[in-house]
Design a protein around this nucleic acid. Sequence first.
DNA 1: TCTGGGGTCCTAGGACCC
DNA 2: TCTGGGGTCCTAGGACCC
Length: 400
Amino acid sequence: MDAFFASVELLRYPQLRGLPVVIGGGRRKVDDDLLARHGERELRLIPVEAFPLLKDYVGRGVITTATYEARQFGVGSAMGMMKAARLCPQALVLPADFDEIRRFSRLFKSTIAEIAPIIQDRGIDEVYIDFTDVPGGQREGGKVLARLIQKAIFEKTRLTCSIGVAPNKLLAKMASEFNKPNGISIIHEADLPSRIWPLHVRKINGIGPKAGEKLAGLGIQTIGELATRAPAFLMQHFGKATGAWMHAVAWGRDESPVVTQSEPVSMSRETTFERDLHAVRDKAELGAIFTRLCAQVAADLQRKGYVAKTIGIKLRYDDFKIATRDQTAPTYTADAQAIRKIAGLCLKRVPLDKRLRLLGVRAGALAKVGEVPVYESNPASAHRGRAPPATELIATPQLF
DNA sequence: TCTGGGGTCCTAGGACCC
DNA sequence: TCTGGGGTCCTAGGACCC
């Protein structure tokens, strides 16, 4: 989907079309504020001048999406708000409305599924689609079906997307970047030297900042340069599996299937504080946040019908270093108090001398509720079995 | 006044078991 | 003085992606 978060906001505020707009994290209070200041008029009638500007933004956060107009100024995803404000102070800034974004995510995916049922989720705004057995999927190299999908999505959502069509997921993903926004790009195997090899290695899905740097150090910038290196050379520098993979992808080879179903591996909640907090001095505040995160993880598990056996925590210190601890319990749980107790034990095993910037709670080793035995914190049902409930196997932790 | 939140996968060492 | 070879599970960190 093209500039997905921002495009969803532009549906609500069409008067912002054509302007640089960036979407931050945050919560949806903007509508209320705007309405309060401009009476009970429709959101789309509120004048542009009433919207908050990036230069007035305070707080720590990153940009999740920028409109193409904002990107002209060098503003982009994952950029800190403060840096973005320097590049494009006049940009309008809106918070992400995650409920609305999820609604549109479900809508565009279900629209595709009606046309081409074999799809793989790739996060909130991306999917892989298997065209192979879709009627008309081979016409004009896939262009006809791609157009049909774009049209159907636009009719349902008024949102645009860009589609890449290729013999495999690796090349399709790269192709989808060629013609944004609202574009279609078809890549054949024979196009490899002309269209893929000139690209920087960082365009490969799976080569990030670290591998990109390391390759640069070896004198490898483009995918074509990567393709000239012997597998043995790459394996020597990156390990057997990664080296072999790098060589394969440089030659456009990817056999991975479109995976239509998968079970979640973990569920987590984390939060970056408005200011760095100290484990001792801000004990009460941290304790409240910690309890809330545990409750959120528990609610997420329950809502989705899962229980977890491993509970973990994550800290980010003021120097941005990350520490994680986790602990596997004797039984599965989705109970907020049980999660809080185990997470509390994890917290006792991690250094708390530096100020904290972020705290997170994670549930892993998941199982579908009903498929594994679960101990509940409900006192009526506890103590009946041979083993005590998980919550009582563990001493009450001293938090902070 | 840098640097979100929710994920997956991989590696590597140690415990433990047969 | 010598000290296997698998296998699984757990934990911590890190790379990467949307």
